[in-house]
Design a binder for these strands. Structure first.
Lengths: 339, 339
DNA sequence: TTATCTTTCTTAATCGTTTTCGAAAAATGT
DNA sequence: ACATTTTTCGAAAACGATTAAGAAAGATAA
């Protein structure tokens, strides 16, 4: 509420002196420094973000962009968890977080323009359709960017280790004796799905295993009914799989429902595994076999990387940071019957 | 990127004229107005939020404060959903959203100070411990505030209709023949719990029903293991209830697990109902009986109210806006056996 | 003593807007 | 033709900070 001017008057010095004293510049005497600082403390002075941002072109504000096809926004459990991790770390380092959108007032603008308008120091982009031209504009712009779960040449990214995730899941399932493993995967266009599929096939190859082509199906992430349909399709085969992997824990529920509808038991009659390690998977009984993605670490790493490229854009190099997940063995994958 | 100055030069008018033209002030000729506006369009001009905020004390930025005891933040499904609704409406009206926290740079400040620092036009407060002195400071400050699920004298609030929610749930359960109804409720200190408990007892009274004191237990919201323990306690009674109400859908899962551990079936042997209408409740089989809280409407109403008190603080009166939920009948409540 | 260097502080410009007030030009009235 | 009103625009101050450049005072060196 009190400005530098008033603070300066109170201390009997100029505004410039106050500014420099508070910012610990070298050309201010030690005694006046503490005098000013104490006065600031007692008078409850704190700076005005707008004025500071205007003058310095630094807002200590980070933009968050999230646009998925389903427009789920913050109700997207994975994204919300990553964002929470991001938020915690960013705030610890003195940055605030603002959502980026496509408007200034009532006027439609691009994401990039919105960022410029708010003068954010950097942007974290997650889960969007990365081929969106507005997102591309932002990626190629002059604002520091970190992407999540998507690789881009011009900026750093933080990726959940989907390769290792699928691998350890397959390892586990294989160890349990399963050979007829079906994989219902999410949208093939995403970086995430590509990594998982590659890992899936690589594993099969390494064990000199092969599954019928029609064991690999596509169902949108988080879509219960599609997962249900795919499951139905798989169970109707002459030679059904003994284990089904799902795009995520939510989709798995769709499968589970279809399985129960047929009076089959999990894991006795068929084994299933999810992905994400969502809250759901942790509380349900039987515990789901899944890969817990370390969302808070992903968010934290993204914040650290973004802030370091903001702070020292020269010395910070772009890189891909891989964050490992963790196999939750659960109880939804049983021993395969030798059939 | 291009400033008003450059735009002014390009149009051959003064900066003042440009500003007034873009803001549609009355003392600018119609012809120059369109000339300026067109130039702004073609040159890709857009304003600088910091400068505008500095000059006008209006940031078109709204602060969001959320602090719960568990520090769940955005991973709190209910809050995240409400916030999403809030965000959508606020952005539609040209406002951006920034999270409020307790720091400016590396220095600890109060929430109120942080709001002043960022010059937010208003704040929405949700799910926090409202007796927190810093929250009280914010509530009593000069910044427009809307609270969610908590009544405060000085500001408007948006409340999920917990009274009607419990009532329709009880109605339904009662209709199904249940008389021995236990209620595991959340923290008794919260506005939400108080409303629900009141409604619960009022219902019993209206039907001249009474339940043993020990049918009413407390377990923290979202806490699976506490719910499990309470359920166990209830089932161990000589005269166990035929139906148990839980604080929320997640807690219900705890109960469900305990029930299944005892080889009891839902709803044949015992009926259960949750609260929230979380995603979980919608996809699980059997479908949970629950009250779906209209999170997006709650968020939307909060945004509308907050923005209208920002826009016209004089004419807008403080009020409590009640948002009704919806009974999801599901399949987890069955007909009570006449015993 | 005088010149030079340090230390410490101030003056003033600046960031990009908005807004008050005054001035010029155009329109109107007589 | 002159006075008056209306319309349209510009000059300049202001918002609250940062920072380059310069000035004053004290310290150091010759």
């Amino acid at each position: 509420m009190i400005s530098m001017k008033e603070l300066a008057q109170h201390c009997g010095v100029s505004v410039a002196t106050v500014s420099k004293a508070l910012n610990d510049q070298s050309d201010i005497g030690e005694s006046t420094k503490i005098r000013v600082k104490q006065a600031a403390e007692t008078l409850g002075y704190f700076p005005n973000a707008a004025a500071r941002s205007l003058k310095t072109n630094r807002s200590y504000n980070i933009g968050v962009l999230f646009v998925d096809e389903a427009n789920s926004g913050l109700t997207h459990e994975y994204f919300a968890a990553v964002l929470e991790g991001f938020k915690v770390e960013a705030e610890k380092q003195g940055y605030d977080i603002t959502f980026i959108n496509g408007q200034i007032g009532k006027k439609k603008v691009s994401y990039y323009e919105h960022c410029k308008y708010r003068n954010v120091d950097g942007v974290v982009i997650a889960c969007v359709k990365f081929d969106n031209p507005e997102v591309v504009e932002l990626l190629n712009g002059d604002i520091p960017v970190v992407t999540i779960d998507h690789i881009n040449e011009n900026c750093s990214s933080v990726l959940s280790d989907n390769v290792k995730g699928i691998q350890s899941l397959m390892d586990y399932v294989y160890e349990k004796g399963h050979r007829k493993i079906a994989y219902i995967h999410g949208q093939a266009s995403t970086t995430v799905t590509k990594a998982r599929l590659t890992s899936f096939y690589r594993f099969l190859e390494s064990r000199e295993l092969s599954v019928p082509d029609d064991y690999v199906l596509e169902a949108d992430y988080l879509d219960v009914s599609q997962a249900m349909a795919c499951t139905s399709e798989l169970l109707d085969r002459k030679d059904p799989p003994t284990c089904i992997l799902y795009p995520d824990d939510t989709a798995l529920i769709g499968g589970l429902n279809e399985i129960r509808k047929r009076n089959l038991r999990v894991p006795d009659d068929i084994s299933i595994a999810g992905y994400d390690g969502s809250r759901l998977s942790l509380i349900l009984n039987p515990r789901l076999t899944t890969i817990r993605q370390d969302t808070s670490a992903i968010g934290m790493q993204a914040a650290k990387k973004l802030i370091s490229t903001i702070d020292k854009p020269k010395t910070t190099f772009t890189e891909q940071i891989i964050v490992e997940g963790e196999l939750i063995t659960g109880e939804s994958v049983g021993n395969a019957n030798i059939s």
